[in-house]
Amino acid sequence: MSALPAKAEEAPACDELLVAGNSEYPPFLWRDPAEPDRVIGAVPAVLEELFAELGIRIQVRHVGPWSRTLESARTGRIDLVAGAFLTDERQQYLDYVVPSLAPIPTVVWMPRDEAFDYRQWSDLKGRTGATLFGNSFGQAFDAYAEANLRIEGVRSIEQAFKMALMGRVDYVLYEALQGRVKLASKGELEDFQSSGLFVSVENLYIAFSKRSRCNTPELREAFADALVRMRGEGRVQEYIADFTQRYINNGTKP
């Protein structure tokens, strides 16, 4: 027991984390209209509460599009990814924390006037879709899409929805809640129809960069314990519901 304080003193102190995520992901994360380099939403709120309990400050920043966020985690330029689906490729440079934040269903978003019947992945064959660069919808679907589907990567989900309305793509692959919130905030929800069946349902995790000096088994365990307690109290869902309404009401206004 007496050796523990000495070891702790030898390790570099970790009192602040640089955090980034998908900044186009309301109600979980989006850029603060009043301070565009800052990211707000349900996930930052959860993280701020949990890390405050652990005595660690966090900065949740916009570092670029989602693909750049993942690259920043891979190279260690950020400490923590605020929400990511689990894939084998990402596990090479991320340490995921269990439990997850929440299950996230993905749907097919179609212009209402050009909607088609979606029942299974093969119904997307012969059509062109759009989604964000770097998005994953589960390893099974990703592999199927790579071999069978034509899906264009774009830098913002607004661009993808605009392309669909212009007839440049037939559908947008995006999460059910996030798509509804994004479209509702812009008054465009009635222009689209989502598939009744999910493309996939993936769990959203918090993940540490393997190159972060703050990434220790002890910190991951303490964070996981706090998240288990917070989920059990219903606090995570409360934050999601709260920020869903906030974004729909005024998320894109200064």
Rank of each mutant, 00 (worst) to 15 (best):
M1L: 13
S2K: 15
L4W: 11
L4D: 13
A8L: 14
E10L: 13
E10D: 14
A11G: 07
C14D: 04
D15A: 14
L17T: 08
L17W: 08
L18K: 15
A20T: 13
E24L: 01
Y25P: 00
P27H: 01
P27Y: 01
P27L: 01
D32N: 14
D32H: 08
A34Y: 00
E35T: 11
I40M: 05
P44C: 03
A45P: 00
F51M: 10
F51A: 04
A52T: 11
L54T: 09
I56D: 04
Q59P: 01
V63M: 11
V63W: 05
G64H: 07
P65S: 12
P65N: 12
W66Y: 14
S72R: 14
A73K: 03
T75G: 10
T75F: 08
G76V: 05
I78G: 08
D79T: 09
L80A: 09
V81M: 04
T87M: 03
E89M: 04
Q91T: 11
L94V: 08
V98M: 12
P103D: 11
I104D: 02
I104P: 00
P105Q: 07
T106K: 03
T106V: 04
V108C: 07
E114W: 10
E114R: 15
A115M: 08
A115S: 13
R119V: 06
W121I: 04
W121D: 10
S122T: 14
D123A: 05
G126V: 05
T128Y: 06
T128L: 12
T128E: 11
T131R: 11
L132V: 01
Q139E: 15
A140K: 13
F141D: 10
Y144G: 10
A145C: 07
A145H: 08
N148L: 03
E152Q: 13
G153F: 07
G153Q: 07
R155E: 14
R155M: 11
Q159L: 12
A160K: 02
A160T: 02
A164R: 04
L165E: 15
M166P: 01
V169H: 04
Y171I: 07
V172N: 05
V172P: 02
L173M: 12
E175P: 00
A176F: 01
S185Y: 02
L189K: 03
D191R: 15
D191Q: 15
F192P: 07
G196P: 10
L197R: 15
V199P: 02
V199T: 06
E202M: 00
E202I: 01
L204W: 00
Y205C: 01
I206C: 05
F208I: 05
F208W: 14
S209G: 10
R211G: 06
S212I: 08
S212Y: 09
R213H: 14
N215T: 06
P217I: 06
L219Y: 05
F223L: 12
L227C: 07
L227W: 05
V228A: 10
R229D: 13
R231Y: 03
G232P: 10
G232L: 04
G232M: 03
G234S: 09
V236C: 04
E238C: 00
E238T: 11
E238D: 15
Y239Q: 12
I240V: 14
I240K: 02
A241F: 02
D242V: 02
D242W: 09
F243I: 00
T252E: 13
P254L: 12
